[in-house]
Design a protein around this nucleic acid. Structure first.
Length: 483
RNA sequence: GGCGACGUGGCCAAGUGGUAAGGCAAGGCUCUGCAAAAGCCUUAUUCGUCGGUUCAAAUCCGACCGUCGCCUCCA
């Protein structure tokens, strides 16, 4: 079955064909680490994670690179994001980066987003960046003005091809305050002069400065994945100017396509409007994980198509939490039945022959531009089928049930990541054990008082087997671990 | 102003020419000592509105209404 993907570059569905059969290079624009990550990141990176997971499921050897932006990304005010964080928290800029990069990775791990193979940082690639900027100047695509180097968009004829923008339109709607030194208002910085109070600075042919925001992705994508890269992914809101600039830089630097397939993820909104700090309507991943399980958050994201927007609301998340629990109940029941069934029993052909259809339907959905909502639909039909089977067959064969369990593990688990490996909940054991022991000894005390020594001794010997010693004294029973 | 996306049952959401998946919620029934879980059934003659094309349209075309995104930092 062919995998079809919607390529933002052509705005068409295309059959996915990597350059080297069986191998896929994928670059995803990562976060700027100047604060804790929020739900918007969940949408983008969970969606991209499922793309990676499904490619692996199809047997591709995937090399996944996702950058960490730790320098050069400015706020609207012109202030550097990292610098702002550093000032706020009285830290070195790189301490800010370290803190929030660790926070980001912790959040992604919690959400079961597979780690990329390489997480390159912009600050670690300044020599390469300088080399590229020089190359662009030499080739006539860039010019220097007082320590700043700009990319001349007019020189790159295809500028705007990804976001379908025309230079004239950009100029006309110029809400961009035109910097006098730019040749064209849409020219963007490749290298910026560091002012006296700018802490992050590197020597360069144009004086001390730091890289512009867009250049790092072109450089690092090409460095680790070659040019062209098979897939370039990220959030749709970055299509302009960021992705557009990446293309311009890379394709002007060497006359080779930058990326073959552009997979862009729709934005997350909150109650209909985009989540943003200025609106104060954002929720950090850490906060969200206090309220919902990782599986529920993933299910929520995957219940709408990755290219479309998704609207966060408490009702939607509650529904996701309950929905994913319904699936978990079935898998839990299945695993419990497998564990407690007699070991004999191969799968009955009549029971499992129809199960292939669910796998196929799932793959048909996923191979159609990663249609996770439809894939989930088939999984829930499967949930119903398994529930029916289990309630109708008190003595189902282990083989049949294992076959069913494998479908959940492969599809809901490995591909979508919405199934926990184990349902054993981490518990505050000390308090719980004390409570349970109190309960057990209270019940046992009733046997003792009615002189039912058989039951009473049975309970005590069971506890002994579990490594718990019970001492019966005049004043009642006490217990201790060990003997 | 320019570019773009979207509008499907109470809520969320698939479905791009052949007669409306799935999840949540609600109601009824079954199972059940009770509870939970689960199963069965019910809930859109209809897909923003109005026209058009077609044997056939949620799906194509046009107009209009509405919502949102990008164009400035964002995942």
């Amino acid at each position: 079955m062919d995998l079809k993907v919607y390529n933002y570059l052509t705005r068409e569905m295309e059959i996915f064909e990597p350059q080297v059969p069986g191998r896929v290079g994928m670059y995803v624009c990562g976060p700027t680490v100047y604060d804790h990550s929020h739900l918007g990141h969940v949408k983008t990176y969970v969606a991209m994670d499922v793309v990676v997971r499904y490619l692996k499921h199809l047997g591709y050897n995937v090399r996944h690179v996702r950058n960490i932006t730790d320098v050069g990304h400015l706020l609207a005010s012109g202030e550097d994001r990292i610098m702002k964080g550093a000032r706020r928290y009285q830290l070195e800029p790189m301490e800010v980066v370290e803190t929030y990069m660790a926070s980001f990775f912790a959040d992604m791990d919690a959400l079961k987003v597979l780690r990329p193979h390489i997480s390159p940082r912009a600050s670690g690639h300044v020599p390469e960046i300088i080399q590229w900027v020089q190359g662009l100047i030499e080739r006539g695509y860039a010019y220097e003005v007082a320590g700043n180097v700009y990319f001349a968009v007019e020189k790159f004829e295809e500028y705007g091809k990804l976001s379908r923008r025309k230079l004239e339109d950009l100029e006309a709607g110029a809400r961009v305050q035109v910097r006098e030194e730019k040749h064209h208002p849409a020219d963007f910085a490749l290298w910026k002069r560091a002012d006296a109070d700018h802490l992050m600075r590197w020597p360069s042919p144009w004086g001390e400065g730091y890289p512009g925001w867009h250049i790092e992705c072109s450089v690092m994508s090409t460095k680790y994945l070659g040019q062209p890269v098979d897939i370039h992914g990220g959030g749709l809101e970055n299509i302009f100017p960021h992705n557009e600039c990446e293309i311009a830089q890379a394709e002007a630097y060497r006359d080779v396509t930058f990326a073959n397939y552009w997979l862009l993820v729709g934005s997350l909104t909150v109650d209909g409007v985009k989540m943003s700090k200025s609106l104060g309507n954002f929720l950090t991943i850490k906060d969200a994980l206090q309220l919902y399980t990782p599986e529920a958050l993933r299910y929520f994201v995957l219940s709408s198509h990755y290219r479309g927007p998704v609207d966060f609301s408490q009702e939607a998340l509650d529904a996701a939490q309950r929905g994913v629990e319904r699936m978990h109940n079935t898998v839990r029941k299945l695993r419990h039945r497998i564990k407690n069934a007699p070991p004999a029993g191969t799968a009955l052909l009549s029971d499992v022959s129809g199960l292939r259809d669910y796998r196929n339907a799932f793959e048909v959905a996923m191979s159609d531009d990663f249609n996770t909502p439809q894939a989930l639909g088939t999984l829930f039909e499967f949930v119903k089928e398994v529930n029916r089977f289990l309630s109708e067959n008190a003595y189902a064969s282990v083989g049949t049930m294992v076959t069913m369990e494998r479908i959940f593990t492969d599809l809901a688990g490995d591909v979508l990541g919405i199934l926990p490996m184990s349902f054993v909940e981490p518990v505050e054991s000390e308090e719980l054990v004390a409570g349970l022991m109190n309960l057990v000894l209270t019940l046992r005390q009733e046997y003792r008082e009615s002189q039912d020594w058989t039951q009473s001794d049975y309970v005590r010997s069971c506890l002994t087997e579990l490594g718990i010693t019970v001492n019966d004294d005049a004043g009642g029973s006490t217990w201790q671990l060990g003997r």
